[in-house]
Amino acid sequence: MQETGTRVKMEEVNCGSGAPITALRFSGDITSASEPAILGTYQGLGPESKRILLDFSKVEYLNSSGIALVIQLMYAASKKGQAIQTFGLTPHFQKVFTMVGITKYTQLHPDQASACAAFSE
């Protein structure tokens, strides 16, 4: 199976009340080659981005190196006091994310609406 590159779309999302939320929408495969897309994009966020939404609904494949990058992102965000909500993962990768302890840093949601709502909790 041919690997496809990682693409990231960054946008501001308004979820009812509160400050805007920065959404990072990933697509393609997330592998060891995705560091610029994952960490580079995250590092490019300004200090005003306090609430971050990670959208994996268009991600086709994640391997262990890609998951390590996501963990690094989560860990860096937790150090900066940024809140992260995640949605769009297939049941397989929800299980993998749980296994590798990502749920210590984020909650996994089935869709954007529930992920947005979680910021208000």
Partner: peptide
């Protein structure tokens, strides 16, 4: 962070944990 073990074909439920090398004191 490794896949949990299977005993007689049944997965043993475990809490998640970070892989090695991610943080200093996991």
């Amino acid at each position: 962070g490794h896949l949990p073990p299977y005993v007689n074909g049944n997965e043993l439920a475990m809490e998640g944990a970070l892989p090695l090398g991610m943080i200093e004191s996991p």
